[in-house]
Every structure is written in structure tokens, then in C-alpha cells.
Amino acid sequence: MAEQLNKESSPAFGNNLGFWFFHTFIRLGGPLPAYLLLIFILPYYLLIRKSARRSASYYLKHRFPKYGSLRRFFATYYHFLQFGKVLIDQACMGILERDRFQVKFPYKEELIRITGQKKGMVLLTTHAGNWMTAMATMDKMEVPVNLLLNVENSDGRHFFDLSKRRDEFKFISPNGFMGGLVEATNVLNSGEILSIMGDRTEGARAIYLDFLGEKAPFPVAPYHLAYVTGADIVVLLTARTGKLSFSIEAHCITEGVDREKLSREETIKMLASNYVTLLEKYTSEHPFMWYNFFNFWDEGENNLKEITAHVKN
């Protein structure tokens, strides 16, 4: 069960009863009582739930390779604390009034400009910070926002359900026809926004790139879609900057890449490398906001389909 949850979302954090307690605390007293409750619950995950500790260790040992076991133990505690606060903030975003939040998003005008070109936009998100923050600000975009996401297995379901805002987004299931990519192609061709997580391959075709000192697989699909449809790719990275306070960065990684002159493989590699460079910078600046809790450095080689298969340079 824990392994399954590791693959699907967070490392077995919480169950329905636990979520009910947190949501009730938030409704009654705002985020502070929920943060307080978190402090009492964390030792359970840290001391008893070995699977949760192991899930965090994959990232921490890459991010802090020189840490001994004691420092890593405290790093794990702090990592869990930050993640717990982010989950509480996500629930707060669904439950509390919007004016309680502070979101710094200086790049929003740029996003509106790019979508205005009507050539489609891949919004590349990551299991880091609070990507729901970014989704919460997407409602004012002038084009529809589609998410290639199995929302039922995502931490994001709490935000979408609590805020009753599922209807504002269209969810494309990665378990659907052709992994949802036919639908994804159509929405990009219609000039719409397609949000994809850039740090999970889910067994699909991948490209291996150095990330925090070791090769890790990244999904090819976002870059392939952009190459074929001519859409732009914007990487969204969010960070928690305080109580109910967030900042959002957006980086257009297709800008300046001459796709006419590069082959498909060269384009995919360049764009994926641009994404990984941004991730390394992000984890350097926000070391405890990476919440991809599974060992994707060691994702089964058997699942990897070489990008060159069937493809001629």
C-alpha cells in the first residue's frame, strides 16, 4: 500500500480521517491550529513510518550527499514539516476566502501574452512547492486550462474538491486512449493550455539527464508535444514564502530555441535540459520544497524506451 501511494502521490501521508481533522481545524480556526496539529503528528511519520522516511531519503541523499545520518534525520523532519505545511496551505486555498492568500506572480502578464498567440502552451509543472497555487491563479486566463493528470490519485484532488473548482479545469486522464496524448494534441492545436507534470515518467518514453549528480528519467511527452504542435513550453515553479504566502516563477523554455533548424531529438534534449537546469536552481534555492517522493533516479530501466527507438536522426 505504501509503495503504491509512493508512486501515486505523497509518501502515504494522511488518510481520510486525518484529512477530515485537518479540514475541520482549518474551518474552525484557520491554518494555525492545523500547523500545530501537524507538529504532533510528524513524529509518527518520522519515527514509525519507515516507508515515509525512505521516500524522502531518495531526494535528500542526492541533495545533501555529505550529510551523515543525524543531519539527514533532522533534514527529513524539516522536509516533512515543510511538506505538511504545503498540504495544509493547499487545503486552506480550497476552504478559506481567496483574500487570505498572498501570491506573487509577476510573470502572469507574460503567460497571457504567450497564450494570446493562440499556438498552444504546455505548462510544465513539478512536484515541488505548491503547484496548486499556480492552478488557482489560472482561472483568469482567457483560454481553457487542461490538466493531463489522474486527479483521483493526486494530492491536488483536495484543492480541486474543497474549492469546488474542478469544473474550471478539464482533466485529461493519462490512463485514457493513447495515454491522453491524442486529446492533449488536440487542445494544443486549439491554442489552449495543457498542464503536465514534468518530473514523472509513469513508465512512458523518457530521456535520461543528470539531475543532482545522477542520471534520472524525465518524460519526453511534453517536449514532443511542443515540437510537433509548435506550442510553447512554460515551466511553472512555485515556492511557499510564509503562512498562506507563495511566489510563482514562470520560464518560457522554448524561447530562443530554433525548432526549424534542430532535429526532433535535438529539440527534445535541449528543452528537457533547460527544464532540469531550472529544477537544479530551484532545489538549490528551496532545498526542502521538492515533493517528488519516489526514487525516480532508479526508475526501472526495463520501463525505459529509448528515445531513439524507431526514430532516425
Binding site: 485514457g176 486512449f177 493513447m178 495515454g179 496524448l181 491524442v182 486529446e183 492533449a184 494534441t185 488536440n186 492545436n189 512512458a204 518514453r205 519526453v220 511527452a221 514532443h224 508535444l225 510537433v228 504542435t229 524506451k305 524507431h310
Partner: peptide
């Protein structure tokens, strides 16, 4: 595979102006 399906969708649009929106 599914990535090739992406190319097929675009191929049909580009060469025949045919869309495949009904899944």
C-alpha cells in the same frame, strides 16, 4: 506508441485538414 499518435494527429491535419477530436 502514444507519442507517434501525436504525430498522426498532426499528419492528418497538415496533409488532409482532417481533425480527430472525437476520442
Amino acid at each position: 506508441d502514444s507519442l507517434d499518435a501525436v504525430e498522426l494527429v498532426v499528419l492528418l491535419q497538415k496533409h488532409y485538414q482532417v481533425e480527430t477530436k472525437d476520442l
